[in-house]
Design a binder for these strands. Structure first.
Length: 492
RNA sequence: GGCCCGGUGGUCAAGCGGUUAAGACUCCGCCCUUUCACGGCGGCAACACGGGUUCGAGUCCCGUCCGGGUCACCA
């Protein structure tokens, strides 16, 4: 075999700093678990001053989904997970799409056969589940076909797959999270490396690509923990340096099931549609399975940049974590509140416009009222529905024990308020506020005795964003007086 | 079933042989207050179980139980 290609490939491998890769399969949406893996992978690279590479693993042609790669780009960009090399930006070790690297895998697979660490297998592809055609545990008869004989059959055009030849003995590999793990090689099977169609299996393509791309930290889900020893054997058979493995436990929907689209669990895109902010999702997800050590052990709010500074892969947890929407809401509420008023207004505007149609309402005045009262952007609409029209309500609403209000004294209070507000020279927050407070003082009453009936008549709701003064101000004098009079009517 | 991994409040989690076993979410109470929310204060609530090792064990060892992963020409 002409080996100049090998030297050429090996010669291109980057050396130096840390290099990590996120290698999703383009299936159409981003799982929360995937996003977390991407985040940790990115964080390892950035915290070490290294490179983050994006590679698309599309060897399963049957599962390709149109537009899926764009969703990956968008999600990563949204979250701030910038990549240094990838299909769109290129890089020194491309191409970054597996199907475009097809012949590479074949060459390495054949090389492995020559090295005696793999063999050609001519067994029929099994049709049924039971007869998988997979002998495993070194029982495949093809394993012992002399190389020259097998090679002749291959050259003659006979269909084949290439299988890894697991040696006898034990294999110990090391994982940054789980430590050293030793397995008996008898428990490992001669997995297929190159499929009948010439494409590599995931396990093989991964090893080849990670090596050729100079990946130093292989970050992936813990479901690959059991195939890690086979990876190790592959690296060793090629004589390559073994990367640092970082296996991450899964994100669960409950104690026994992973989060999954199939169970109706939200993907990243779904969370955005549910009114969550990507910074909140990133912050929450970062802490779902990882925690900072030392002086930051009690800190929970981190920007991406701050995470880069404190991230340490040793803080990654071994056990699975259950995704808790309530806690995500807490983070989201925090980020929503932390927004500058204008920034919040920009975000909230579409939701406000969809809920409030009365042209006289200044949404810029409504926004700051709902800002501290939202867990998600979807919480806006139900709070502001009364601006368009007062809903049906019961006079019981006027009765509030703590405010010491009942229907009779509410009617009385509204009777005082209406002329006072009619006479107000200026219609602004302070003027309205002082006017109503003065009214309470004049009658030697608690503020609530005046405020509660007013707010009730204006909104018809027990709970509103903002109190009586805010509502008067936003509704405007005309609408305020109209609703107040309607309240009097309602109570009479 | 074999092999591998895991197991601290309902949830996320500190803890690395000696702590009154942190903190956060949720829930409850109180304060603030023109409702609610925000904010502040306080409270409920945990080392799966059994054996060792040790002066001393959530922390180390063994077993049990429970949970997960994996055993594809999917990734």
């Amino acid at each position: 075999m002409d080996m100049t290609w090998f030297d050429e490939m090996e010669g291109r491998i980057p050396t130096g700093g840390a290099r990590t890769r996120f290698a999703p399969s383009p299936t159409g949406y981003m799982h929360v678990g995937n996003l977390r893996t991407a985040l940790y992978t990115w964080l390892i690279a950035r915290s070490l001053g290294g490179k983050f590479i994006l590679r698309i693993e599309d060897t399963d042609q049957g599962r390709l989904v149109e537009g899926a790669v764009d969703i990956i780009y968008k999600t990563l960009r949204d979250c701030g997970l910038t990549w240094d090399e990838g299909p769109d930006v290129g890089g020194p070790v491309g191409p970054y799409i597996q199907t475009q690297r097809r012949d590479l895998y074949g060459r390495y697979a054949h090389l492995l056969v020559e090295k005696g660490a793999a063999y050609y297998c001519f067994c029929e592809k099994a049709e049924s589940e039971e007869d998988s055609g997979d002998f495993g545990r070194a029982a495949d008869p093809c394993r012992d076909i002399p190389y020259a004989v097998a090679k002749a059959r291959v050259d003659a055009g006979e269909p084949y797959v290439i299988r890894q030849k697991i040696p006898a003995g034990q294999t110990t590999f090391s994982d940054a999270i789980y430590g050293d793990i030793t397995v008996d090689n008898a428990d490992l099977d001669d997995q297929v490396l190159l499929k009948r169609d010439g494409l590599p299996t995931y396990n093989f393509a991964n090893v080849i690509d990670d090596h050729l791309m100079g990946i130093t930290h292989v970050v992936r889900g813990s479901e690959y923990l059991s195939s890690a020893p086979k990876y190790d054997l592959l690296y060793r058979a090629f004589g390559w340096a073994v990367p640092t493995y970082v296996h991450c436990s899964p994100v669960m929907r409950d104690a026994q099931n992973k989060m999954s689209k199939r169970h109706g669990d939200p993907s990243y895109e779904d969370l955005l549609a549910m009114g969550f902010l990507s910074q909140a999702v990133v912050n929450y997800v970062a802490l779902l399975g990882w925690s900072p050590r030392g002086e930051y052990a009690e800190t929970e709010f981190f920007t991406l940049e701050e995470l880069v500074g404190v991230f340490d892969l040793h803080g990654i947890s071994k056990s699975p974590a259950i995704f808790d929407l309530e806690k995500l809401k807490y983070f989201n509420a925090h980020y929503l509140r932390a927004l500058a008023p204008q920034a919040f207004f920009d975000l909230a505007r579409p939701y406000l416009e969809a809920a409030v149609h009365a042209p006289a309402i200044d949404l810029a005045l409504v926004a700051p009222l709902v800002q501290p009262r939202c867990d998600t952007l979807l919480d806006i609409a139900p709070q502001v529905d009364f601006f368009d029209a007062v809903p049906e309500y019961d006079n019981e609403l006027y009765c509030h024990k703590k405010m010491k209000t009942d229907q009779a004294n509410s009617l009385e209070a509204l009777g005082w308020v209406i002329p006072a507000l009619e006479a107000l020279p200026e219609w602004n927050f302070d003027a309205i506020h002082d006017c109503l407070i003065a009214l309470a003082e004049a009658h030697e009453l608690k503020n609530g005795r005046i405020m509660w009936p007013v707010r009730t008549a204006l909104s018809g709701k027990a709970v509103t964003p903002g109190g009586a003064v805010e509502l008067c101000h936003i509704l405007g004098r005309e609408e305020t007086l109209k609703r107040l009079r309607a309240g009097v009517e309602h109570l009479s």
